[in-house]
Amino acid sequence: MEQATKDFNTGPDWKVKGMNVILNDMKGLVLASSLNERLIGKNTLEIKDPNGKEFVKEMVATATKGEGWVDYQFINPETKKLEERSMFVKRLPGSDLFVGVAITK
């Protein structure tokens, strides 16, 4: 787990244009983000996308069920452009963590 967190945060293999890999706990705390290092250590449970969708809460709910897709809008911190994104989230067995991989539509 420690190595995966480090790799997601700093590894060039995870910093692919149009993709984001995250590791969160079920309370919304960001443990790793390949796209936005400023989110690491922050609780994002209450944030909303530009349309007011509480997408992190939806990610947690989806991960609680096991796995699935969550659609949302996102302002890319690198390009500053609004993007339509989909994230596949999956709960890590035996933990209160989930991993997510987002793609730009």
Rank of each mutant, 00 (worst) to 15 (best):
E2A: 02
Q3I: 14
A4F: 14
K6H: 11
K6P: 06
K6G: 08
D7P: 03
D7T: 11
N9Q: 03
G11S: 06
V16D: 02
K17P: 09
M19V: 12
I22G: 03
K27Q: 13
K27T: 15
K27R: 09
G28F: 01
V30F: 00
V30P: 02
L31A: 03
A32W: 05
S34P: 01
L35W: 02
L35Q: 03
N36Q: 10
E37M: 07
E37R: 05
E37I: 13
R38Q: 12
L39G: 14
G41D: 00
T44A: 10
L45V: 12
L45T: 15
E46D: 15
I47A: 04
K48N: 14
K48W: 06
D49T: 14
N51V: 13
G52F: 05
G52P: 09
E54Y: 11
K57W: 07
E58Q: 07
M59C: 13
A61P: 11
A61C: 11
T62M: 03
T62K: 06
A63N: 00
T64M: 10
K65E: 13
G66N: 01
W69Y: 12
W69T: 15
D71H: 12
N76W: 02
N76S: 02
E78Q: 14
E83K: 13
E84I: 13
R85T: 07
F88K: 06
F88Q: 07
K90W: 04
R91D: 09
P93A: 10
P93F: 03
G94R: 00
S95H: 04
S95T: 14
F98V: 06
V99I: 08
G100C: 03
A102C: 07
A102E: 05
T104G: 06
